[in-house]
Design a protein around this nucleic acid. Structure first.
Lengths: 131, 131
DNA sequence: CTTTAATTTTAGAATTATTCTAATTATAAT
DNA sequence: ATTATAATTAGAATAATTCTAAAATTAAAG
């Protein structure tokens, strides 16, 4: 594994976020000022092919790169906040229903995060005339 | 709903495929030779916002547009073939585990389609020396 | 019906994301 | 050291998508 690939992999594995190529590039640049965006793309592609990371596409924004460790994603439909979660035994359930083996799956669950839910409540609350 | 929006919506709802903006544009052009790609994009965006269709992103290819009717996707990891499937009661299962309501979810299940599985078998079969 | 206003469509430029190519640099092997 | 191999760079090229301003269409008001 090459120098930059290693650093990029570290960045992805250490961060809780799901970063775009651009964001990773900016991070990496702090330590390695000479690095160039194309290099980041190159390394991301090979890291993906070799199975060290996974690429995730979210509609409306550019691709993000994520650790490989199996997990699912919880997305707030309002603010877009993205967090990791693990739904247990889903593979088995899916295989049972499908009737054959699956290789993997990609699940995004959309909900309203606590913060947005609160805001919505407030906005839609019946007006008392006292506020 | 405007003329083109209507036609685009029809195309999406009638087709079994999951078409890109470009493909939809080419289809639409057969009936409406004057239409232009930007118009298709415009209409796709408003149709999405209004909830008539949904946009789906598949890594490695451009966005596709899909009917809204709830269903999941089965993707062959080898040839990329995409088909619809419905996993039953998944919403409830997810809500139970999450402990709160969800709005929707997006599930892609990766497997090897029968055709690719066959091909793989053949390729990896022990050589008898008779072929 | 006309005129005006509002909306939709068009054309094409602009932007963004990503890939590709060829030259350069670095690393490893002889 | 010399050669071979692989990695990195710079920047052009491509692809996908959005934006902008003008033109065309539709709807509304007189």
């Amino acid at each position: 594994m090459t120098k930059y690939a290693e650093l990029i992999l570290e960045l992805i594995n250490q961060s809780k976020d799901h970063m775009t190529a651009e964001q990773l590039f900016l991070e990496l640049k702090k330590r390695e000022p000479k690095v160039v965006l194309a290099t980041v793309y190159n390394n991301l592609n090979t890291l993906c092919q070799e199975g060290f990371i996974r690429k995730m596409s979210i509609e409306g924004s550019s691709d993000r790169y994520d650790k490989i460790e199996k997990h699912d994603h919880l997305v707030c439909k309002k603010c877009g906040m993205l967090s990791d979660i693990r739904f247990e035994d889903l593979t088995k359930k899916l295989e049972n229903q499908l009737g054959e083996d699956i290789l993997s799956y990609d699940l995004k669950v959309f909900y309203l995060c606590p913060k947005c839910r609160e805001e919505n409540k407030r906005r839609h609350a019946p007006q008392t005339g006292l506020l």
